[in-house]
Design a protein around this nucleic acid. Structure first.
Length: 628
RNA sequence: CGGGCUGUGGCGCAGCUUGGUAGCGCGCUUCGUUUGGGACGAAGAUGUCGCAGGUUCAAAUCCUGUCAGCCCGACCA
């Protein structure tokens, strides 16, 4: 048995703290590369007994408490040694899967000149979200919030022929966005690590192939990251583009709401849900619409109450009037990027609210503002609280564009405003009595809504956006002039795809999904180490054995954290091990007298005693087995 | 940008109503005891009480202003 003393640390490692860089991929020959262990006695780490006051979400709380990250400024964090290891592990997975589909890694600066962003209009469109700065000469720069321009311009710079394509390139880089409200630790920061890749193809078929390859790679990445996720249809947001899917980590605390079908495999971000359009209904023989006095009924609730008192239903006596029988008309102000303001009227069933996110996605890149009292004053045709289709529409008196919820098909019958104070129209038939300028997906999506794919029931859930893939199309290629010569010698605009993974966000998302009351519970592939060896007791023999085991495991290429702290009570060590969340905990202690060492599974709590002589292979099997 | 809350040692907090020596727990240092579930004793170190004005003999405490942070909402990848 070796005496406790200087540890046989592999050469090149000054103190066991040096292995913070991603582990290089192992040589194929199968010769295990020894990995320096982290020793708690010297590890730059301080765990906190209490939760930090400014953290709410479990991921934020635990990452700070367990000593993975420290806040420096709002939305800006330091990666401490353990955290950096996890981050690097996530990066390594992303890198491997991107490389596997032939994407090539490069790295753009985070500090960028403004000119490319002016060329695409985003210097202004991105607004306050850009961190801007000036150099000593007064030239303007920004910290890149995203790098579409750089990717596009660099390809333009170097390539000019269809023979050069297809091409997929990516980077893992820090991004900067001056969030109005950074929150939830790493989940929404102002500085964050993102993998973004772009594909460049000459035609739609090529784009589709590149998209499919990325999609497959993303499935592998998120499978390996080891948390529950869903792939949902999405809108492409400010980036522009068409086909689009998001990878969401399922999480109650997530910021994104999505729906999934309880019967088929349909899933979509609420912003992207398309309402199933009912068949038009024949309206021959329906009674004519009639306007009635409905005093004091400017809201749907007051209107429904009044209807049931003053105009109880005759034909369906057992069905009182409901909010869904009314057609609610709402006006918003659409503000275009050039500052132009245009009112927009939306008609939807009275039992639904406008979902501002869904509406926003429809009018992108324009923004929505309230249509206020002053705006009403400028449009005398509008009777606030009693607006109806009578005056709405581009060819109607108000000249305001009027779009309907897709549920309002021809033949549906409604109660709606009569465009005069205290008056409503009953029995107004869509298609017969009014038409609109089109339809719009702006009504809220609710739990229980009909699935647009199979007609069954949708349920809503929350998630964290982890990845987003979409077919960008020609937007950036056009505005930046990225063209190549095709095989006929003609210039064609390149078609691009855009694919992002929130790398630092993934660390938080995994933590959000993988923890218990005691601390973090990392999936094996991204854990800061494979094994956490805990030496308990004060016997020299215990520390010597823990040391020996640590070295032996490291020699097998296993990453080890060894709690070799003297004068620290076992309770503290156990608590720290559980907080830190390495998947396998090995306890060298009281069992040693009987010749055994304990292996404990962090996730399940299962523990077993293993004879000292078999401990190395038992741990190796545990690690390799679970890691596949 | 709206609403709410909070700024006191590295962390978590009390003290403020009613002005008068800046306190507690954790952590940290030293010594001793302890060592299988966040040990114990003793002795220590660490504070421009967010900042700036004002009132007062005297301000962490009262007044005015200001800045910052967190949470909810809006917005956003």
């Amino acid at each position: 048995m070796s005496a406790v003393g200087p540890l046989p640390i592999p050469s090149g490692c000054p103190g066991g703290l040096c292995c913070l860089r991603p582990e290089p991929s192992r040589p194929d020959q199968g010769d295990p590369v020894s990995t320096p262990a982290l020793r708690m006695s010297t590890l730059f780490l301080r765990t906190l007994r209490e939760d930090p006051a400014d953290a709410e979400l479990p991921s934020h709380r635990l990452l700070v408490r367990a000593g993975y990250i420290r806040r420096v400024a709002p939305g800006i964090y330091t990666w401490l040694p353990l955290g950096l290891r996890v981050l690097r592990n996530v990066e390594a997975i992303v890198r491997e899967e991107m490389d596997a589909i032939g994407a090539q890694e490069l790295s753009f600066p985070a500090l960028l000149p403004k000119e490319p962003f002016e060329a695409t209009g985003r210097w202004t469109e991105y607004g306050d979200n850009i961190f801007r700065l000036k150099d000593r000469k007064g030239a303007e720069y920004l910290l890149g919030p995203t790098h579409e321009e750089m990717f596009t311009l660099t390809v333009k710079d170097l390539y000019g022929s269809y023979k050069d394509l297809p091409l997929s390139i990516y980077q893992i880089q820090l991004k900067y966005r001056d969030e109005a409200r950074p929150r939830a630790g790493l989940l929404r920061g102002r500085e964050f690590v993102m993998k973004d890749s772009y594909s460049f193809d000459v035609d739609d078929a090529g784009l589709q192939a590149s998209y499919d390859a990325h999609r497959a790679a993303y499935v592998k990445i998120f499978d390996r990251l080891g948390f529950d996720y869903v792939i949902v249809k999405a809108t492409s947001g400010a980036m522009g583009g068409s086909a689009s899917e998001e990878f969401l980590a399922t999480a109650e605390n997530g910021e994104d709401t999505y729906v999934r079908c309880t019967s088929c495999d349909y899933a979509a971000n609420v912003e992207a849900v398309k309402v199933p359009v009912p068949q038009p209904i024949a309206y021959d023989g329906l009674p004519a619409a009639r306007a009635e006095d409905t005093p004091g009924t400017p809201t749907i609730a007051t209107l429904v109450d009044h209807l049931n008192v003053a105009f109880p239903r005759q034909n369906k006596a057992d069905l009182p009037w409901q909010a869904g029988d009314t057609l609610k008309n709402v006006i918003v102000m659409v503000v275009h990027p050039d500052g132009r303001r245009e009112p927009l009227a939306i008609g939807l069933p009275g039992d639904r609210e406008i979902d501002e996110k869904r509406l926003g996605a429809q009018v992108e890149p324009a923004e929505i503002e309230a249509f206020d009292e002053a705006d009403f004053a400028k449009n005398p045709a509008l009777a606030k609280g009693y607006m109806g289709p009578g005056v709405l529409g581009e060819r109607a008196e108000s000249r305001i564009r009027y779009l309907l919820d897709p549920r309002v098909v021809d033949g549906t019958v409604w109660v709606t405003g009569a465009d005069a104070p205290d008056r409503h129209v009953i029995g107004l038939v869509a298609g017969r009595d009014f038409t609109a300028d089109g339809t719009i997906e702006a009504a809220e999506v609710r739990n229980g809504d009909e699935c647009p794919s199979c007609g069954q029931v949708l349920e809503t859930a929350r998630g964290i956006e982890m990845g987003h893939i979409f077919q960008l199309g020609r937007k950036y290629a056009e505005s930046l002039g990225l063209k190549v010569l095709d095989h006929n010698g003609k210039l064609v605009t390149v078609i691009m795809g855009s694919y992002g993974v929130g790398v630092s966000r993934a660390v938080a998302a995994v933590a959000e999904g993988c923890h218990d009351e005691f601390g973090l519970v990392w999936p094996r592939e991204i854990a800061p180490a494979d094994v956490h060896v805990v030496a308990t007791g004060k016997a020299e023999e215990v520390f010597a054995k823990a040391d020996e085991l640590t070295v032996a495991l490291a020699a097998q290429g296993i990453q080890v954290i060894c709690d070799d702290r003297r004068k620290v009570s076992p309770g503290v060590k156990f608590k720290d091990a559980e907080l830190i969340g390495v998947p396998t905990i090995v306890i060298v202690g009281k069992g040693l007298e009987a010749g055994t060492i304990e292996i404990k599974d962090r996730a399940t709590g299962d523990r077993r005693e293993v004879p000292v002589g078999q401990i190395v292979e038992a741990v190796v099997a545990e690690v390799r087995g679970a890691a596949l």
